[in-house]
Each structure stands twice: as structure tokens, then as C-alpha cells.
Design a protein around this nucleic acid. Structure first.
Length: 844
RNA sequence: GCCCCGGUAGUCCAACGGCAGAGACAAUGGUCUCAAACACCAUCCAGUGUGGGUUCGAAUCCCACCCGGGGCACCA
């Protein structure tokens, strides 16, 4: 059944008996820690999972999100790697060359904060934790290729992060601009939009405020449409929630740009707005400009300027939390100017308010209060007119102050009057605007450019020099990496500007262009930049001439599976997709999506709640491993339920898992046939179970139903046990076949137990690199099946029939059955549904 | 408010539109034991959130609602 290596283990039957007795003694104390200690060094020596770039085998790339080095591994790491490992190990057994690397996302704030507290260097904390986690991963027996290990905080790595930044900058995709940005007062740094959750810093929970700063951005918006479109192709193999989260985040909308003319004190000028409802243009009764947009200051009359500036000052003070609350009363100020509606020439007031966002669309809107609740609230608060232009049959919003947004008949809308088709209404208005040069159809995205600069130390320095005469100058590529200066302890204290700015020796340099005095850019990059390309680096991790070897990358990528937490649904995954597309446009990659398939594991919780120190419900991974062993913990996590479901540690039983592993292990000691014996003449009933299990297990792994796969292996163990104790007996070759199948299948989840079984069954290590058992298709066909006969939907009889019985024969057999005849009780048979060979339903 | 995903024994979970149970936890009884633990054997347990519909037949497909989880949300 296997093409693996065989080694005769035992010679005489007499010896066998005594050894079996010995085994029984061992059973009492199946010492998981001894088994772990036995195999760990063997695997270290065999290095069975090193990916060979030159292998002729088909390549597979199994990636798991690399960890941040905070302390030791915890339950979350244990879960994600256990799930991931099932796939990687399965692929090895199926004959693929598998790239399964691991590394560390080792720049970031926790290390910096720890360094400040303990007057240390962040690297001390970081690299100590990495060593701890690496040792734990090895003990945890994940099938990683350790030769490809990387850390994003190594200069050999971040040199290439800097190189990529420069390439992006050359293409106009990294640029600086002044803009109001999210500021975390606690971490003393700016944050990307994606890192602000409900107005709070996603890391520390502090309320985010706005600051007007000059910052670096990646132009991810240039790829908005492609990032959205390509989700369609990913939808079948990516989790729904990730795809929808990304769609929502990108937030495409269709509508129109409409140009109004504004009468300002310095003459007429155009004011462009974006709207998704150009068909309601006749209902625009005023306009609103974002109070904090430069536009508002340009439009306001001298008479209104003091009022406007007072309002603006008020707005600036409000935190994001306040701004985000939707039930806040509308506020605003009249700018004193009027605008002319391009379709009906009507003159309407122009206001400024904070309910219009400066950085979305054009920063100005046309207000149609009858059909937009926000505009209606504003109109009500300010006493502005409301005019219904779509009659939906609902009460008039002018009276009810309930905006109507549905379809209806156009009224008060000139050429649209009487029309009911919204799509036609939109088209008509856009055509008219286009013909008059006052607008056009337009698309807008919610996605903003990616703010990448951070005012902190422990990150990748931005390789740019600011020169008084030459301006912004890129650090020449041959001078990369720009290494971080040695700072520690108090030097790292957040002061609102990067700690690097105070490192005089480091920050003051000669301009690479003119040689004059210049300063380095003192910000560092968002750590999401580091993680946007690490999966490429794994393909050629030791290449010191380039960020990655395109030939290797194109051979291994895209990743066949990416396993990780759903918390990265938009952040990391969107950024990594963006990087991939840019690098493809640079001609370095021949694919445009980095991750072909994805799996998001659930969260390990306890007693219905997230584990936390304050609740005191944390489950310590190390203690669990100590008590039950690596295999039992891994098995528990994989068996608990579907991979994406949360696992409540109170609902699962590592003790039960250990019990099962012992049962499986015991099989290997009971087998008395010799390795390599042909199973052909073995017990057919057991062989059927074995081959059916192996067959189904493959399908179950491929469809990621690992919990069901484990259940099927348990079934096989139970069947083998029965065969040994009360069936064909331990000498039957089918028992060996079954036990060997258990070892191989179990190696996906419980590598130590599987290796020990494999050894006891007389094979050389490692079971992880043997081949998947070959399924004998003939054993999958049952020689008889149970057909159910229903009368009026109720089961009345069961017939043992041949699996290839004809429908006519089955129907005849069913009608001939006594029990069926009794149930029919002479009633007229109206219809007989036959689904050979499993079912007959008789309708009377 | 809008959009996704999910509700099956006491618990966690299975079930191509075809006998609701693969597997496990817990419980109960037994075997072993001086006893207990471990181990082993056996037993117990739901008609699938609610209400309609489609069908010969629905946990499964459709509609509405309820509950839970997630995403978006002053994005015009």
C-alpha cells in the first residue's frame, strides 16, 4: 500500500509474544513527553520539510501569517499552525514539493514600549522573544522549512523594504502631502484609516484626534478598481467575510459629478459635487461644503468669515468619536454665497458643515433634503427649503421629515416628470449635463490612500533625504539599508516627532546630490509595509542582490493557501494585494494576486468569553502542552469544529484527545504481521473501512473539513480495535494495513504519535515523508446496500440489495415485501419513486 | 439603518433534497480493583430557532420573522 521503506522489526513469533506483553506494560504509561523527546532530535537531523527549489515535483506554497514576537506562543498561534500544518503535511504526503516557511513580523510598538520601560534596546526584547517562539514552534512540530526564516527588523530584510519604497516612489505611488490625519495621542503617532476602529486606535484604544501634517502615502487608490474587480475571482476560494469586508472597505459607488456655478465676492467660479442620485438634481435646495476643506474658506463672504472661522475652530476640537455618532444634531454655518443649479438655473444657498467629509468625493455636496435623511436633518435644523422630486407614494418628506429614498414617479423635475424608471432618470440627467459641459457620470471610492509614515523608532526608516537646495532626494540604492541608529530607553520616549529626529549624528547627512547639508527623513514606515511582501522574500530568502528572485517567486507563488486571522481581512490582505499588483506592473511578478486561497481560523475562547487577564479565564498553552502533550493539544484544536469556528476551551477535551491517541498508538503494538505483508488476502470488511477512510480523508482535507477527517480516523481506529479483539485478530494483514493508514492519516495532526506508531510498525522515519496510501477503488464499492422502502414518507421496510440493482427490480422487490404490503393495506398505489439502490417511496 | 454568515441531543459537532448520527465531551450502569483513579464495555439523549411555501420526500431549496456572530455606517 505504501512505497515507503520497510524494515523487518521482529523475527520470531515467540519473541513477539513477550514483546507484546511488554507493550501492554508501556501502555499504562504512554509517556507523551518521552515520545516527544525521542523524535524531536531525529526530525532535527532529517530536516524533512526543507523545500527544494530545484525539485521536479509540483510545487505548493502553504503560508501562515507570521507572528509578532510578543512573549511566548499562545493558544491562537497553536490553533492557526495546527490547522495550517494539516494542509502542508497533506501536500507533502501527496507528493508535492511544499514551501512552508516561518518568520517574524518583528518591527513594532510593543518592543519599543518595553524598551522605554526597561531602558533597553527594542532589539533585545524582540530577538529574545523570537528565540522563545522559535523553540516553541519546533517543539510544537510544525512542518516549517526553518532554513528560510526571516525577521522584518533585520537590516538584510528592511534594506529591501526600503528599496521597494524607492521603486514605489519612482512610479509616483509613494508621495507626501499635507492632510488632516488620524493621530493617536497615546502612541504619539499617526495612524492609517484602517487602523482606526470606531474612532479609536486599534492598538491601544485611545481616542483618535486629527492633526494637519505632512506625511507619506502609498497611492493605493490608483488600484481601487482592480482591487475590487479581482475579488470576484477570489470569492470561491476566499472566506466570504473577507471578500465582503474588502468590498465594503473599497466602497465603490456610481453616480455623477455635477458642476454648479457659485457667485462669490471675487466673481463666479465652479463648484463640483459628487452625487449618487443625479436624478434628484431638481430637488437640490442648498449646497454644503466640508467645513474643514480649503474650499469653504475660499468661498465664504467677508461678512460671514468670522462666523465660519468660529465654526471651523469648533469642528477641529471635536474628536472622531463625536464626529462619527450619527445621531448628533446637525450644525453648520452659511457661507453667504449662492450657487446656480445647472438644470433649472435656480439660485440656492451654500453652507459649510462637518457632516460633509473633506476627503471624500469633492468635499462638497448638493443637498436634496427630500430624499436624503442627512440633508433633511440639516434643512430642518437650519430652516432650509425641502422639495420632493420623487413621489414614492409615502407621505411627503416636507411634512414628515422622513426622507424617502425608494423609487417612484418623478415630480417637479422638468423633463423627468412622469417617469418612473430610476436608471433612465439618472441616465437622462447625466446625458443632459454632459451635453452642456456641466457634469458627467462618475465613480467614487471610499478607499483612501495608505498613510505610511510613523513617528516612532522601531520600524523601517524611510530612505529619503531632505536637502534645502535639492528638496526631497532618494537615498541611492547602493547606500541601502539606511540602518537605525542605536537608541535605547528614554531616547525612544514619544515626543510627537520621531525619536530619530533627535539623533543628530544620524539625521544630519550630506545631500547625495549636491553634497550640501541635509537631513534624513526621520519617520519610519508602518509595519504593514514590512508584511506586504514577506511572502515574496521567503522564495529566495538569502538573496543579497535583490528583494526577491523573480524566477523563484514566479515558480512558487501565488500561495496555494494562506492561513491566518480574520482581523487582517482588510488591513494586511488589502496592502499585500496592492503590493503584488504594483510589483506585477513593474514586471517583476507574473501574477496579480498573492493568495489563491485563504483560511481564517476562529478564535480560542474560554467559557463563552474572549480570554483576558482581567477575566482570569486565560488558558496557558505551555501548561496544556505539559499536561497533555503536543499531539493532544493539536488534535483538540483541529477536532473541535470547523476551522473557521471559534473554539471554546470549556467545550473541548484535551484529555479525550490524549485518550484517543493512546488507543491509536496501542494498535501499532498489537499488530503481529510483518512489514510489507500484502493486505490482499486480509479481512475484507476491515479493508473496506480502511480504504473508505483514506479516500474520504483526502477529500475532507482538501475541503478543509479537518474535524470530520479526524472523526473518520477515530472511526477507523475503533474498527481496527474491534477487528483485533473480536474479529479477524491481530495477525490479519488487514490489521497492519489499517494501523499503518492510521499512522499516516494521524501524522497530519499528531506527528509524534504517528511517528512512534510508524516506528513500532517497523518503518523508518519519517512517516511525514512517506506517501499517501493508494486507495483500492474496488474496495469502495459495497457488495450490498440497504434500500429503504417508504410508504407515505414513512419507512416501512429495509431491503439488502445489490448496489447496481435496476430501478424496476428494486420497485418489484419493494412491492413484494410483506411489511410494505401490510402498510399499504390494499390502498391504491398512485405513484412509486425509485432512487436505486437506496430508496423507494410509495405514494398512495 | 444596510450587507454577509450561522441556529441540529445536556455540550461540541456530522449528515450528495432520501432511515436525523460519523466522531467526541458529559452523564448513567457494568467489567477490572481491597478501594479509587485510569482503562475497557454498554446505555441514555434531539425531529433540526419560529411560521409559511416548493417537493413523492426538506436540517438541506425559497419567503418572512426571531436570536447569535461579523462587516459597513453622516462616504452624499
Amino acid at each position: 500500500m505504501w512505497a515507503g521503506t520497510d524494515r523487518p522489526r521482529r523475527t520470531s513469533g515467540v519473541a513477539r509474544m513477550s514483546e507484546r506483553d511488554q507493550d501492554r506494560d508501556e501502555q499504562v504509561g504512554y509517556d507523551v513527553h518521552a515520545v516527544e523527546a525521542k523524535w524531536l532530535p531525529v526530525w532535527e537531523r532529517l530536516d524533512p520539510f526543507r523545500a527544494d527549489d530545484a525539485s521536479p515535483r509540483e510545487k505548493r506554497y502553504a503560508l501562515t501569517m507570521f507572528p509578532y514576537p510578543s512573549g511566548d506562543l499562545h493558544m491562537g498561534h497553536a490553533e492557526v499552525t495546527a490547522l495550517h500544518d494539516v494542509i502542508a503535511r497533506y501536500w507533502w504526503l501527496r507528493g508535492y514539493e511544499v514551501l512552508n516557511p516561518m518568520g517574524w513580523d518583528s518591527f513594532g510598538l510593543p518592543a519599543e514600549n518595553a524598551a522605554i520601560r526597561n531602558n533597553e534596546h527594542p532589539a533585545t526584547y524582540t530577538y529574545a522573544n523570537i528565540e522563545t517562539q522559535a523553540a516553541s514552534f519546533k517543539r510544537y512540530a510544525v512542518a516549517f522549512d526553518w532554513s528560510r526564516r526571516l525577521h522584518t527588523s533585520d537590516p538584510e530584510y528592511y534594506r529591501w523594504t526600503q528599496w521597494l519604497f524607492l521603486k514605489f516612489r519612482e512610479r509616483g505611488l509613494a508621495y507626501r502631502k499635507d492632510s488632516p490625519v488620524n493621530w493617536c495621542p497615546n502612541d504619539q503617532t499617526v495612524l492609517a484609516n484602517e487602523q482606526v476602529v470606531d474612532g479609536r486606535c486599534e492598538r491601544c484604544g485611545a481616542e483618535v484626534t486629527k492633526r494637519e501634517l505632512n506625511q507619506w502615502y502609498f497611492k493605493i487608490t490608483e488600484y481601487a478598481q482592480e482591487l475590487l474587480d479581482d475579488l470576484d475571482a477570489l470569492a470561491p476560494t476566499w472566506p466570504d467575510r473577507v471578500v465582503t469586508a474588502q468590498r465594503n472597505w473599497i466602497g465603490r459607488s456610481e453616480g455623477a459629478h455635477v458642476t454648479f456655478t457659485v457667485r462669490t465676492e471675487s466673481g463666479d467660479r465652479d463648484l463640483e459635487v459628487y452625487t449618487t442620485r443625479p436624478d434628484t438634481l431638481y430637488g437640490a435646495t442648498f449646497m454644503v461644503v466640508a467645513a474643514d476643506a480649503p474650499l469653504a474658506a475660499e468661498l465664504v463672504t467677508e461678512a460671514q468669515r468670522p462666523a465660519y472661522e468660529a465654526y471651523l475652530a469648533e469642528t477641529r476640537k471635536a474628536s472622531d468619536i463625536d464626529r462619527l455618532s450619527t445621531d448628533r444634531p446637525k450644525t453648520g454655518v452659511d457661507l453667504g454665497v449662492t450657487a446656480i443649479n445647472p438644470v433649472n438655473g435656480e439660485e440656492i444657498a451654500v453652507w459649510a458643515s462637518d457632516y460633509v467629509l473633506a476627503d471624500y468625493g469633492t468635499g462638497a455636496i448638493m443637498a436634496v433634503p427630500a430624499h436624503d435623511q442627512r440633508d433633511l436633518d440639516f434643512a430642518k435644523a437650519m430652516g432650509l427649503p425641502v422639495r420632493r422630486v420623487v413621489d414614492t407614494g409615502e407621505p411627503n418628506p416636507e411634512e414628515t421629515y422622513q426622507a424617502t429614498t425608494g423609487d417612484g414617479v418623478y415630480v417637479n423635475s422638468g423633463p423627468l416628470d412622469g417617469l418612473t424608471d430610476k436608471v433612465a432618470g439618472i441616465r437622462t440627467i447625466i446625458e443632459r449635463l454632459e451635453s452642456e459641459g456641466r457634469g458627467s457620470g462618475a465613480v467614487n471610492f471610499r478607499l483612501r490612500d495608505w498613510l505610511l509614515s510613523r513617528q516612532r523608532y522601531w520600524g523601517c526608516p524611510i530612505p529619503v533625504i531632505h536637502c534645502e537646495t535639492c528638496g526631497e532626494v532618494a537615498v541611492p540604492e547602493d547606500q541601502l539599508p539606511v540602518e537605525l541608529p542605536e537608541l535605547r530607553g528614554a531616547d525612544l520616549k514619544p515626543k510627537g516627532v520621531s525619536p530619530l529626529a533627535a539623533a543628530e549624528d544620524w539625521v544630519n547627512v550630506d545631500c547625495p546630490q549636491c553634497g550640501g547639508p541635509a537631513k534624513r527623513d526621520s519617520d519610519t514606515m508602518d509595519t504593514f509595509v514590512d508584511s506586504s511582501w514577506y511572502f515574496l522574500r521567503y522564495c529566495s530568502p538569502h538573496d543579497d542582490t535583490q528583494a526577491f528572485d523573480p524566477e523563484q517567486v514566479n515558480a512558487w507563488m501565488p500561495c496555494d493557501i494562506y492561513v491566518g486571522g480574520v482581523e487582517h481581512a482588510v488591513l494586511h490582505l488589502l496592502y499585500a494585494r496592492f503590493f503584488t499588483k504594483v510589483l506585477a506592473d513593474m514586471g517583476l511578478l507574473d501574477f496579480r494576486e498573492p493568495f489563491a486561497a485563504q483560511l481564517n481560523q476562529g478564535v480560542v475562547i474560554n467559557q463563552g468569553k474572549k480570554m483576558s487577564k482581567s477575566l482570569g479565564n486565560g488558558v496557558n498553552l505551555g501548561a496544556q502542552l505539559e499536561e497533555f502533550g503536543v499531539d493532544a493539544v493539536r488534535l483538540t484544536l483541529v477536532f473541535a469544529g470547523p476551522p473557521e469556528d471559534n473554539i471554546d476551551w470549556a467545550d473541548v477535551s484535551p484529555a479525550g484527545s490524549l485518550r484517543f491517541l493512546q488507543r491509536a498508538w496501542r494498535l501499532s503494538g498489537d499488530v503481529t504481521s510483518t512489514p510489507g505483508v500484502s493486505a490482499e488476502k486480509g479481512d475484507v470488511a476491515l479493508r473496506r473501512v480502511t480504504h473508505r477512510t483514506v479516500h474520504d480523508a483526502a477529500e475532507l482535507v482538501e475541503s478543509k473539513r479537518f474535524n470530520v477527517m479526524v472523526a473518520r480516523v477515530m472511526e477507523l481506529v475503533n474498527a481496527t480495535r474491534k477487528a483485533i479483539d473480536s474479529g479477524c485478530g491481530p495477525a490479519d494483514p488487514a490489521v497492519r494495513e489499517a494501523a499503518e493508514a492510521v499512522a499516516v492519516l494521524l501524522s497530519l495532526v499528531a506527528p509524534y504519535t504517528a511517528e512512534e506508531m510508524w516506528d513500532r510498525l517497523g518503518h523508518e522515519p519519517s512517516v511525514a515523508r512517506t506517501t499517501w496510501p493508494v486507495v483500492d477503488e474496488t474496495l469502495l464499492v459495497e457488495d450490498s446496500v440497504t434500500a429503504v422502502v417508504q410508504v407515505k414518507g414513512k419507512v416501512r421496510a429495509r431491503l439488502e440489495v445489490s448496489p447496481d440493482i435496476s430501478e424496476a427490480d428494486l420497485e418489484a422487490a419493494a412491492l413484494a415485501d410483506d411489511a410494505v404490503q401490510r402498510a399499504l393495506d390494499g390502498a391504491t398505489v398512485r405513484k412509486v419513486i425509485v432512487r436505486a439502490p437506496k430508496l423507494v417511496n410509495i405514494v398512495v
